[in-house]
Amino acid sequence: MTAPHALSPAQALPRLQDLIVLDVRTPGEYATGHLPGALNIPLDHLSRALPAIRHAAGHGDILVVCASGARSDTARTTLAEHGVDTATLTGGTGAWAAAGHDLHRPEQASRLPWGMERQVRLTAGTLVLAGLGLGPIHPALRLVSAAVAGGLAFSAVTDSCGMAAVLARLPHNRPRRADIDAALAALLDRQHRR
């Protein structure tokens, strides 16, 4: 990509029709709202999609998107290590929506899965409460609360989240094979139209 490695929503908006947009969030997060035309390739499926992404990169610029920018930056780094130059959307879909730009949502989804940040908050809160609540029974169980607190502090300092990585592997956060195959087919189809 000849452009910078990060585009603000204002910079990305006029180029959106010309960009190949890859959303690296979980399928549940993607379903809650994504950039128009974005293809869902979850971060942990990037290696499977690498050949199609590499091929498509030869036919257009790629913008990698996530919720806040952290996972898309990881994806950009991984793709760069494999010779694929991409850009990320500064602030992710959160910044895109905050700037007043539309997010597309599936019409058929009556009950959407929770976003990853909400799942992490629920899990962390539940573990802390369990550690504190069961602490009087066995004081060592309070260490669960301490471990979660330490993990959250580490997550903030490193801008990564181990709990999100674990939660992303749960069945409701996993993409269906057909969805990945459709995204790869759309990626290949898009590059043929260039």
Rank of each mutant, 00 (worst) to 15 (best):
L35C: 09
R118N: 01
R76F: 02
W114N: 04
T78Q: 12
P14S: 09
A153M: 12
L103D: 04
G33I: 11
W96R: 05
G83V: 06
L7F: 07
R48W: 02
A57H: 12
L63I: 10
I41N: 00
T77V: 08
R76G: 07
H192K: 14
V148A: 03
H5E: 14
R76V: 02
P42F: 01
A149S: 13
P4V: 08
P113E: 12
P9A: 02
L7K: 05
I62L: 14
L134F: 14
P14N: 10
L35M: 12
L79C: 10
G33D: 11
A52Q: 13
G91Q: 03
G94S: 13
G115H: 10
W114K: 08
V84P: 00
D179K: 03
L141C: 07
S110C: 04
R169A: 04
L134R: 02
G133I: 12
L143I: 11
E81W: 01
F154I: 15
A31D: 15
G131N: 04
A6W: 06
A80L: 14
L35W: 11
R121N: 11
C66D: 15
L187T: 05
R142G: 11
M116I: 11
D102T: 15
L184S: 00
S155K: 02
L134S: 05
A165E: 04
Q108I: 07
Q108G: 14
L112S: 15
R15C: 08
P113W: 07
C161K: 05
T123S: 13
T2F: 01
D181S: 07
D61C: 06
A99P: 13
T88G: 01
G135Q: 14
V65S: 01
A147W: 02
C66Q: 06
S155Q: 08
G91F: 06
L127F: 05
I20Y: 03
N40H: 06
T86V: 11
L167G: 10
A70N: 14
L143M: 13
L22K: 00
P42T: 07
G33T: 10
W114D: 07
G94W: 07
A109V: 15
A38W: 05
V64R: 01
L127E: 08
G150N: 03
N40G: 07
N173F: 03
A97Y: 03
L63Q: 08
A10L: 12
D18H: 12
W96F: 11
A97C: 07
R190Q: 15
L43P: 06
G133W: 12
L16N: 03
V24H: 02
L184D: 01
R48Q: 15
Q108P: 05
A75V: 04
I180L: 09
P136H: 08
G37W: 10
H101W: 08
L112C: 09
A57G: 15
A146N: 04
H59L: 05
H138V: 11
L134Y: 09
A6R: 11
A87G: 04
Q119M: 11
A109D: 09
R174S: 06
